[in-house]
Design a protein around this nucleic acid. Structure first.
Length: 211
DNA sequence: CGTCGGATACCCT
DNA sequence: GGGTATCCGACGC
């Protein structure tokens, strides 16, 4: 008789359920975008097993002139007006993809993922990103999508099912004051709204924290 | 490690 | 037309 493995996992055929992963709380995505954006710092995101700890986010909602939802539904932003808890993926500069998590008590809210710490699937990230320092694998919203293999094919997909795996934070060792709020990056309208959130002192941010 | 220009394509008003 | 991220080479700290 072989003793049961001491790992916190059950197996059903080829499916492995990792019992160490906290369950996404009900209503997690019903929070307003700035609230969820702050909560996501220290959470972990995997796409097909590739990803790491989120260290930089930005919040957008329909009251915000910087938001794609500000001027109402279009073909591109349809996912922002769908149910919370789904992905919104859009193209930036005609060549990069950007991943948002649709959220909020009303339509039109989303959190843009701007940077994470490469932790899982780093060899595949390197293949996708080419010869860059590991620090730069997921440092920026477009780079993050390239490293995780996120494209418009993920637009509208639910975030609580494969290929997505979102594990709520905060990460070990994160305490009060670990999250910095400041102005968002690369926008002109709504530039004074402090809806960029980042992990204080992280070297994986797309740019240093301001504010 | 930070900042600075210059170059690149698509979505929406 | 206005908005937008990345890569590059350059240079300062």
């Amino acid at each position: 008789m072989v003793p049961a493995p001491q790992t916190p996992a059950h197996t059903h055929g080829s499916i492995v359920i990792d019992l160490s992963s906290p369950i996404l709380p009900p209503g997690f995505f019903a929070a307003p975008a700035p609230v969820l954006a702050r909560q996501l710092i220290g959470a972990r995101l995997l796409v097909d097993g590739v990803g790491g700890t989120i260290v930089e986010t930005e919040a957008y909602d329909s009251t915000d002139p910087a938001s794609h939802s500000f001027s109402g539904p279009t073909a591109r932003n349809a996912a922002m007006f769908g149910p919370p808890g789904h992905a919104y993926v859009y193209r930036s500069y005609g060549m990069h993809w950007c991943l948002n998590l649709v959220c909020g008590p009303v339509a039109g809210g989303a959190v843009l993922l701007r940077a994470l710490v490469p932790e899982d699937g780093i060899p595949l990230m390197r293949e996708r990103r080419g010869p860059v320092p590991d620090r730069d694998l997921c440092r920026g919203p477009g780079r993050l999508c390239q490293a995780l293999g996120v494209t418009v094919a993920h637009d509208g997909l639910p975030l609580d099912a494969p290929p997505f795996h979102l594990i709520p934070g905060p990460a070990e060792g994160m305490g009060e004051g670990a999250v910095v709020a400041g102005p968002r990056i690369g926008i002109t309208r709504g530039a004074d709204t402090p809806w960029r959130f980042s992990l204080r002192g992280s070297r994986f941010l797309s740019r240093p924290a301001r504010g």
